[in-house]
Design a protein around this nucleic acid. Structure first.
Length: 518
RNA sequence: GGCGCCGUAGCCAAGUGGUCUAAGGCAGCGGAUUGCAAAUCCGCCAUCCCGGGUUCGAAUCCCGGCGGCGCCUCCA
């Protein structure tokens, strides 16, 4: 089955056809770097990182760009409040953003262009629009003339007339049409600015993405992504100004991810931290409180400090990317629990074979997927079927949730094989069976890598898991083993119960006793 | 007022015209295994918000309700 992608522009899934054969250009709207990243900032990058992994696996040469907005009102205000420069604040907050991306396993991004480095490009576009009468200067600003674009509104499916009815748009100023939007904003007293043919000022919100996308990836790109909240007005305006400038389709596929919401379905982030003149009502304050530390605050301190980054990534990918993601502490806890079975499987594999799952070199292209032709036929036959289902899910508009389900089934299938072949019962020498196990693990690694998970061991060691604790546990286990050998089960159980109370779980295996902290 | 989305088991969630009396996870309940546990395996656990309609056939399409949500505010 061919890859199909949902396109916001057509409102349907389309066969994936690139502008240039074998190449994919992908642009994701990134953050305004004025405060530490919250978990919502991770959603898009993780999704499109996964998209890139899957496209690469399918043989495409993908270029993935995320922009950094480093000039903006929020940035200006925040820098002023903090008594720092815009540059310093932007630098600090982009570092925070990059750290977070790295932590959550987003490492496929090719370039993070900064808006302030492309002012010249933006001015070129604005100049062309003004020349062709699709934009007009007004009191130091420059506005895009929406009525000059006959298909304005095609992305978000609205027309200018409908839009104005009932909005809070002030019938203000002298704009030709209230829906006209700023390409260039004249600098007020004390604001940063750049010289331009229309006076000193700074770019409007949308123009930076047009400029960077065109300059870095070309006038027509394959995928333009972003959160659903950006659909209007940001993407609509970006599209309008870009196509009005070049006369070419700006992006082939518009992909929009659902937004993260707190458990009671209120959006995280939201108007509360915006301009400050929005007065949050009591209910939304409550909602914000629920989202609380998890959603609204720095993802580093609120989320990564409590949950393994891999758990967070898995959680983000377990819902379809176009759906809202209901965030709650409980759902992250559940996700974490659901992953433990994988980690135990990896442990068992290493215990028996001496090889780490994380060292397995799996295929990175669909053409070179692991061969499942040899015996034992039943086991490999099932694995092969699971692989097909995984790829089918991913082929269908990157259905990572469906793919994750298949991964769980694969885990069960492999565990079943291990039990059936008694591979983990201590000292198995069945080389053919162990080889089959290794093959299965290679496949699991291959598919998990497409989601960007199970790439590295998770740091599970807590502060007390030091060498001393290990030595103590070795001693306790040894003493308990003697008790068990002598059938002094009351003693053995007292030890185990005592450890349980300390959140230490013992596992008696045929070949010894393992322990872990919960 | 305009544009749009969603409603699947206790919870999360895939499936969007037939293989669906519906994948998978968490929780729960039986069983195997174990000295007992833990882990693992096997089994059980939903007719898809409600009412009409289209169709040989609908969770899936259409209409109408009810419920939830988003955008129209430079929030990813």
């Amino acid at each position: 089955m061919a890859l199909r992608v949902y396109n916001t522009l057509s409102k349907q899934k389309e066969d994936f056809q690139t502008v240039q054969p074998g190449k994919v250009s992908m642009y994701l709207c990134g953050p305004t770097v004025y405060k530490p990243s919250h978990i919502g900032h991770m959603v898009g990058p993780v999704i499109f990182d996964t998209v890139k992994r899957y496209l690469s696996y399918n043989g495409f040469d993908v270029t993935y760009v995320i922009n950094i907005t480093d000039v903006d009102d929020k940035l200006i205000n925040r820098a002023r409040e903090n008594n720092t420069s815009i540059e310093a604040l932007a630098a600090e907050m982009s570092e925070d953003y990059f750290d977070c991306l790295k932590t959550i396993g987003v490492d496929t991004v090719d370039e993070f262009p900064r808006a302030t480095k492309y002012i010249g490009e933006m001015q070129k576009i604005i100049g062309r629009l003004v020349e062709s009468n699709k934009a007009y200067p007004l009191n130091g600003d420059v506005y895009f003339e929406v009525t000059s674009d006959d298909d304005y509104g095609k992305l978000s499916r609205r027309n200018v007339d409908d839009m104005l009815a009932g909005t809070r748009v002030q019938a203000n100023d002298q704009k030709h049409n209230p829906a006209d939007f700023a390409l260039w904003k004249g600098a007020k007293e004390g604001e940063p600015g750049w010289d331009s043919p229309w006076g000193r000022g700074r770019p409007g919100w949308h123009i930076e993405c047009s400029a960077m996308s065109m300059k870095i990836l070309g006038e027509s790109i394959d995928i333009h992504g972003g959160g659903l909240d950006l659909l209007f007005p940001h993407h609509e305006n970006e599209l309008a100004q870009s196509e009005s400038c070049t006369g070419k389709p700006f992006a082939r596929y518009w992909m929009h991810n659902g937004l993260m919401q707190s458990a009671d379905a209120s959006k995280i982030g939201g108007a509360h931290d915006a301009s400050g003149d929005a007065v949050p009502d009591q209910q939304s304050q409550e909602a914000n409180k629920l989202a609380g530390s998890l959603g609204a605050e720095s993802v580093k301190t609120a989320v990564f400090a409590k949950f393994a980054p891999e758990t967070v990534r898995f959680f983000l990918l377990s819902t379809h990317y176009r759906s809202p993601i209901p965030l709650s502490e409980d759902s992250l806890v559940d996700t974490g629990k659901s992953l433990e079975g994988f980690y135990r499987l990896f442990d068992a594999y290493e215990r028996v074979t001496g090889h780490s799952f994380y060292d397995i070199g799996a295929a990175t292209s669909r053409d070179q997927t692991v061969s499942l032709d040899e015996d034992p036929a039943d086991f490999f036959g099932e694995l092969s079927h699971l692989r097909d289902r995984f790829l089918q899910a991913m082929d269908d508009d990157f259905n990572t949730g469906g793919g994750i389900g298949v991964l769980f089934e694969m885990r069960k299938c492999i565990n079943g094989f291990v039990v059936q072949q008694k591979l983990d019962a201590g000292g198995s020498t069945d080389e053919a069976a162990i080889a089959a196990w290794a093959t299965a693990m290679t496949l699991l690694k291959e598919l998990a890598s497409l989601l960007g998970v199970f790439r590295q061991p998770q740091e599970t060691s807590g502060p007390t898991d030091d060498a001393f604790a290990g030595q103590l546990m070795d001693l306790i286990i040894e003493v308990r083993a003697i008790a068990r050998k002598d059938k002094q089960f009351d003693i053995a159980d007292k030890i185990r119960d005592g450890l349980t109370a300390l959140n230490v779980t013992l596992e008696d295996r045929p070949d010894g006793t393992d322990w872990r902290r919960e």
